[in-house]
Each structure stands twice: as C-alpha cells, then as structure tokens.
Design a protein around this nucleic acid. Structure first.
Lengths: 211, 211
DNA sequence: GTAACGCTGTGATTTATATCACAATGCACT
DNA sequence: AGTGCATTGTGATATAAATCACAGCGTTAC
C-alpha cells in the first residue's frame, strides 16, 4: 500500500471522520474549515491540512472542505473495500464490554467471532457473536477472512494467543494485555495499556496540582 | 514538580515497573541489564538507560540495575506519597469492566468512588466501590482528596462530565469517550479511543497483507 | 596486581513529528 | 470585470523523541 503513512496520521483521520459524521448529523452543515475541524479534534489547523494532503483530498479556499466528500475520501483511504472482519480473543469482563461497545457500530469493521479457552463458552452466542474454542481459530479465520484481532486475555496468556493468531494469518492486533507482544515485523500491534494510562493520568495530575 | 518530563517517558517507566515486578516474582533474579529490560519492554537499550537518567537512578557497569532498588526508585518518582485516590464516572459495561480490572491491583492507586447519573445506581456498591449521584461529586472529592478520574460515559455527556470534574478539583483525566475534551491547561487528559485504535490495527493489517 | 571485557552514562546525531509562514486560489462584494 | 480577503496547500523550519557511539568504570580472571 501507500509509501510511508504514519501511525499518528491514521489515528487522526479516524478521529476526523467521526467528528465530521457528528457535524453532518447534528448541524446539517455542508462545509468545514480546517481551523474548525482542528479545534474539534484538539490539533492545529496546519496539522489538519497536512493530514488532508496525505489522503490527497483537496478543499477549496474560502469554502473549506466538503464534509460529505471528505468523509468518503477518508473512508476510501482507511477502509477495506467491503467489510473487514475482526475477531476478539478472551471473553472476560473487558472483552465482553468491548464486544458490546462495537456491536453494530462501524458497519464496515465487524467483530465476527470470539474465542475463549473456557470450554463452557464455546458454542454460545455473546452480544451477537458466536464463541469458538481456541483450536478452531485457523478454520474460522480462513472461512471468515479475519486479518485483525482484539486481545483481551490475561497477561500470562497473551503471548501464546498472539502466536496462535499470527500463525492463523492475523496481521493487525489490538492488545489490551499489559505485555509487549513479540511478533514478526509483518504484524502490526496497537497497545492499549489501561494501567499505564491511569498511572500517567495520576502522575500528571499531581504535577499540575503543584503548579 | 520536575522540569520537563515527557509523557512517553512516564508511560515507559510504568511499564518497566510492572515488568521488573514480574521478573522479581518469577525468576528470583536480583539484577537486570538495560538490554534485557529493553527487550521485555520492546524498546532499545539506549532508551532504557535514558529513562533511568530521568529518574536519576544509577546502575553499575557489569552488574546492571538492582531490580528491587529500581522498582523503589520508579515508585518514588511516579507515585504519590501514601495512597492516591481515583474516581470513575459512568458505570456502563466499560466502566464496570475497568472497575473490576483495577479492584485491588495497584495498592497505591485506588478507585474509591464511582458516579453515575442513573438514580437507581446511587447508593449501591459495585466491585467494592460505593456509587454516588453526580451532584455529590464536590463533597466526595473533597472528603477523599480525589484528583484523578476515569471517564467512561457516552460521548454526548463527556464534556459536561469533564467540566464538573474539573470544577470539583480533578487535575488528571483518563478519557474513554471518543471526543476531544476541552479543559484548562492545568488539567492533563489521557485519551483512550478504542474505536480509533481498532481502526488503526485494521488499517495496518491490510497494509501488511499487501507487502 | 593488572589486563581485558562488557556494561553504564551521556554528548552528539539522526529521525520523526508538528508548526510556521506565505504564495496561490477562488469566492463575495462592488 | 475588478478588488479584497480569508482560506487552502506546501516548502521551510522548529521542536520532540529516539538512536548512535564511545569514554569511563567496576568486575572478573589469571
């Protein structure tokens, strides 16, 4: 795919798209200026314009960006043609919460299967998703063409789950386990470490108290 | 507090600490080399040494870093003296999952109160935390000296909740709502946007498939 | 006692990321 | 049609973050 597109840029594009959708729905506006979108996203106007450059979308001076077109352009850039399927591994509290959160949210990014090593859960349906046993992974992934997975298992199991996922053909991981997953360079890992994030918030809260 | 300590560094320190604790518990080792810790954390050895500089911890050549001492030094740097209290706002699926996740995990960073605007929940106890009504915030925060909060409310309510929190004296926020919170510069916000993260993972998964 | 090794600590450098600043553009108003 | 003006697109620049590379030192081996 594209030459060298940064992590950060992709994240902002995803955010822009959601903000734009809200704008379109709530305000019924048709155009938006870079500084307006920037303020909503918490970045600078120049940053927004640079990101537009990356996806090759052109606004018009004096009018700004056509919201509908822009959403479509971002989608064209970010999304797979058709529906992209995702699996979730580890149906604990967090896994279930995330499953519920995404149920029917983004139409073209769909959680189609969940896995757990508790044999009692296999065969059941959780938030509209069929739960499978771990060993069914290769088969299910092949059938449903899954290439992205969410990992919500305990830290101790995360690496072996990641290995299984990679072996089954997954190339993108969203990892909630507080460990650094060792994967081939051909696999992308996005870490969400809640403990670290909370400790950061707590640390800087104290810093700000002092000043 | 300290001059100019970066976000990223604080995050890594938090991670190092957890890795070191595991090392101490599992392997019974006493010293660790920068390259070993680096590999576990998924960063370079130079990065680890630079981070040690920041907290002013000195290892010894040939032996490395004394794990016990280092954990203590990181704690001395990151943690409040005594217990730091945290509140959680929004007891939906995600809020409950996070509450359970943190219950009794880090001894000196404790969720001591939860808030929800559902009047039926006020007065109940969820995962060992008393649930209060929104309007009790100033009082509870003052009594329990809360300066950090986790926001797990729907996007539409996030800004007004943030305003209330800031007014009640909170200086650090861990925000799960997919919106950019507008807060004074004296308040630190750490965003965890699950949707964006999943879209990033999905995007790069496709990129890697192509190559 | 001393020589050799491998690690730490850190200045210098590179790379990534964000901002600045301004020419080019096209709409609005006359 | 022409002028003014606020906005875009983007090269140049600044800032932040990570890496390199090597001097200095403690440990170990002999």
């Amino acid at each position: 795919m594209n030459a060298q597109i940064s992590d950060k840029t992709v994240g902002r594009l995803s955010l822009y798209r959601r903000l734009l959708s809200n704008l379109l729905r709530e305000k019924e506006e048709e155009f938006v200026f870079s500084h307006r979108l920037a303020r909503a996203a918490g970045v600078t106007a120049a940053q927004v314009r640079r990101d537009m450059m990356v996806i090759g979308y052109n606004g018009s001076p004096k009018k700004g960006y056509a919201i509908g077109d822009l959403i479509e352009s971002i989608g064209y850039f970010l999304d797979a043609p058709g529906v992209q399927t995702v699996a979730l591994v580890g149906v604990g509290n967090l896994g279930r919460a995330i499953l519920t959160y995404f149920a029917g949210r983004r139409p073209n990014l769909k959680i189609v299967a969940v896995f757990d090593n508790d044999p009692n859960k296999a065969g059941t349906v959780i938030s509209g998703c069929r739960c499978y046993a771990m060993q069914d992974m290769p088969e299910v992934f092949k059938e449903k063409k899954v290439n992205t997975a969410i990992v919500t298992v305990p830290a101790s199991q995360a690496q072996s789950v990641a290995d299984t996922l990679v072996a089954a053909g997954v190339r993108g991981l969203l990892n909630f386990a507080p460990v650094n997953l060792r994967v081939p360079v051909s696999v992308y890992v996005e870490d969400m470490d809640i403990t670290t994030s909370l400790e950061k918030a707590a640390f800087f809260a104290r810093c700000r108290m002092a000043s």
